[in-house]
């Protein structure tokens, strides 16, 4: 059998909605695309802990602190599910972490924006997690089995993240004038970066076609982005706040909201490393990794010592 034959078999499995599992034959480009996408997704969960970690020690109440800790802990867990899924494609965990820490690997640009006020915790939960959920719900049906299974687990846990964010904003929206202003300010700052999370326009995205054909993705960037706008434009009314887009308007013909234009220069600047916090995020990751090295080494040494003691004990009993 030649390679074309394998490729045909592979595509026919995809077309029949049969999941691809780690030991199945797959085109090299499929493997590489999945490694890139899953590891980037994992890195985003890990770096995503930083803007929120910033507010754990300054949460306004014990309840909010406990919620924030639980949310950040979930994100560490989501990173782990995704790293494990990417590892089944043949890239080691150490290699992925090294690529993140060196800046070679990308993560979602949204986490290169700073979390300036408490209201940002609400806006991140509502908008950033809301945008991530739309993408992740779609990915529950992705063609690579381990990735799809990780996403099912993630989606189950993620819905609390968005709800707690919206509720945080809801409380602020009913508060004092200062609290209302803080709420609106956070929405203003996070709205456009959240729309950028869906990636470049379909007409400019290089990976869209092949990823759709392989069913790694099920919806295009623009479809997901529109879905998000339609959703948020309604929800913001409940908060009594506005979205910072004067072109935002319901279009009865398309049954969707029309809206303005993303600042694509800003998008590419942040992707290329020139966002407000790119350097701090990478520095924080590297510091955590390096400062934790002794823990990893000590755990290894302890495991070796325990295994030796166990072997000696067994030898003694056998004698």
């Amino acid at each position: 059998m030649n390679i074309q034959h394998f490729e045909q078999l592979f595509q026919s499995k995809i077309d029949k909605e049969i999941k691809i599992e780690p030991k199945d034959w797959m085109p090299e480009a499929y493997r590489k695309t999945n490694i890139r996408q899953i590891s980037q997704h994992a890195h985003s969960e890990i770096v995503g802990m930083l803007p929120e970690g910033n507010w754990i020690s300054r949460a306004p109440s014990l309840k909010r602190k406990a919620i924030l800790i639980a949310k950040v802990q979930d994100e560490a867990g989501h990173g782990l599910y995704l790293y494990s899924a990417a590892e089944t494609l043949g890239m080691s965990r150490e290699e992925m972490i090294a690529d993140l820490n060196s800046g070679k690997a990308k993560y979602s640009s949204i986490f290169n924006y700073p979390s300036l006020t408490w209201a940002d915790m609400g806006a991140i939960g509502w908008l950033v997690d809301g945008a991530a959920i739309l993408n992740q719900v779609m990915l529950c049906r992705t063609s690579y089995g381990p990735y799809a299974r990780a996403l099912v687990r993630i989606c189950k846990e993620e819905s609390f993240h968005q709800r707690q964010g919206f509720e945080t904003l809801l409380v602020l929206s009913k508060g004092t004038e200062e609290q209302k202003a803080m709420c609106q300010d956070a929405i203003n700052r996070w709205w456009w970066p959240s729309l950028m999370m869906f990636g470049p326009k379909d007409s400019e995205s290089t990976n869209n076609d092949q990823s759709m054909k392989w069913k790694i993705k099920r919806k295009t960037n623009d479809e997901l982005r529109q879905q998000f706008v339609d959703m948020a434009a309604e929800q913001v009314k409940v908060l009594g706040m506005t979205l910072p887009d004067d072109k935002l308007k319901w279009n009865p013909t398309t049954k969707h909201y029309d809206w303005g234009e993303i600042n694509w220069d800003e998008f590419w600047a942040v992707v290329k490393g020139n966002g407000p916090c790119n350097k701090q995020r990478l520095a924080a990751r590297n510091k955590a990794h390096n400062d934790g090295a002794w823990v990893r080494e000590a755990a290894n040494a302890y495991a070796v010592k325990k295994a030796k003691a166990q072997a000696a004990k067994e030898a003694l009993e056998a004698a």
Partner: peptide
């Protein structure tokens, strides 16, 4: 769950995970 015949995903694990 790793490795398989030629061009399955896990082939490279042995190469990269020897740390």
């Amino acid at each position: 769950d790793f490795g398989g015949d030629e061009n399955a995903a896990g082939d490279e694990v042995k190469k990269t995970n020897d740390d």
